[in-house]
Design a protein around this nucleic acid. Sequence first.
RNA 1: GGGCCGCUAGCUCAGUCGGCAGAGCACCGCCCUUUUAAGGCGGGUGUGCCGGGUUCGAACCCCGGGCGGCUCACCA
Length: 491
Amino acid sequence: MEDINELIEQRIRKLEDLREMGINPYGEPYDITHHASEIHSLFGEKDAESLEKDPVEVSVAGRMIALRSFGKAAFSHLQDETGKIQVYFRKDILKEAYGIVKKLDIGDIVGVKGELFRTRTGELTVMVREFKLLTKSLRPLPEKWHGLKDVELRYRQRYVDLIVNPQVRETFAKRSAIIKFIRDFLEREGFIEVETPMMHQIPGGAAARPFKTHHNALGIDLYLRIAPELYLKRLLVGGYERVFEINKNFRNEGISTRHNPEFTMLEFYVAYRDYRFLMDFTERLFTELLKEITGSLRLKYGDLEIDFSPPWERISMFDALMNAGVPEEVLRDYEKARDWARGKGIDVSGAVTLGKLLDEIFKEKVEPSLVGPVFITDYPVELSPLAKRKKDDPDFVERFELFIASREIANAFTELNDPQDQRERFLKQVEAKEKGDEEAHWMDADFIRALEYGMPPAAGEGIGIDRLVMLLTNSPSIRDVILFPQLKPEK
RNA sequence: GGGCCGCUAGCUCAGUCGGCAGAGCACCGCCCUUUUAAGGCGGGUGUGCCGGGUUCGAACCCCGGGCGGCUCACCA
């Protein structure tokens, strides 16, 4: 960064002045007694007289975000992780140390110590007895009225966004609380958390294009994982009955308000259960999560108001399509479905199977109306190469997707544990891949071998954490819930 | 990747018909010991995203490129 301007030069001069005064502008550890919010919650009720009678001494540290300076006194607000507190510097108290105050700028990080008092206007304030410059800031912060709005700067320099936009700090605090709740919930339900490889020799568990990398010492190409699924199921083979992983997946696809190349996924697997169990479980997880995070089962998202009160609607993909006005005979015949979709102007160029056609029609005709929450169940087998077939209808699988605000939030199914069927499904995928489907699954011979040892009947589910956080924080873009979203290089 | 929109001071933004680059905040100097977007007086600090072109003259018009936003396609 060579963008040194006059404002920065001025601050560098102040920094040099401070050094000459014997002040270290990149200070030392500083002991605080309180955070800003603690001062307000502990002493917010005390009036001016009682503060004078029983003085409360506090020590706080934070970034100066406002400075109103008089000749021989100055008010400032310090911002720490919890909030803001006003502090008051006076020359008659600080004596020669007041010369340092004159060299302070908005953005500097300071520690102050002194007694609480109330100003004429009643604001709880620290009367500074002593203070230390902890860090000199060389770059000017965005202005106080409009703050930082330029979204490009907000994403590129998230640190500045976090300093000046408190709601951004709240969003990411909420993200942390959501993930913690989920982790605790799963642990209460008997799950253990595991970590499986990020670097796969065979990328599997999803239909997606992977990132490729290379391991020098082994001399082999590796792929960043597109899903942990096949490893988690290997753990079911190994004897764990309930496992989960919350971690990144990587998919080499377009970037949008709903897609970041790396994103956080929860996947969990339960032995001896099926997808019906997971629907109940998901309802329970979400309703308890909502109560914890927002305190209500009604959620506002954009213009939508979504009611999470159970039970949630459950409808098969087939019925949902029929309800949307797709004739039954169309749903059962590839050529009829293709012609019907074309007639409706739906692009079906890449849909080589009836299942893919139905998926296209579904995305066009059903998905936009799924405010939800709603479980769409029983998907065509060719869309779900890792899911178990329905007993009474082998062209479909025991699978559901949970839709909220027209978005797929969760995807779950009863796991296919028949190694022979799994091998055939993989072979079909390999065939599709050879025909040019770049997102088709790869053959994973070791996974088949694992199934041959025997995987208990089980059900598994994936929940996109970023999209869930978007919902719960009313964020329109995935970039608002990822601290450092992927952007093109600055120059 | 396609379409539409945007990019001017540290930040937020104006800028008329192509005619000396502006405002508020921030900043600098002076004054000011209870302020809250403190106040008063004075000061404009600029690679106009980049590169070409048209023109006597371009922030403005044209061409090419960059980055970002929205959207479509793809996905989760």
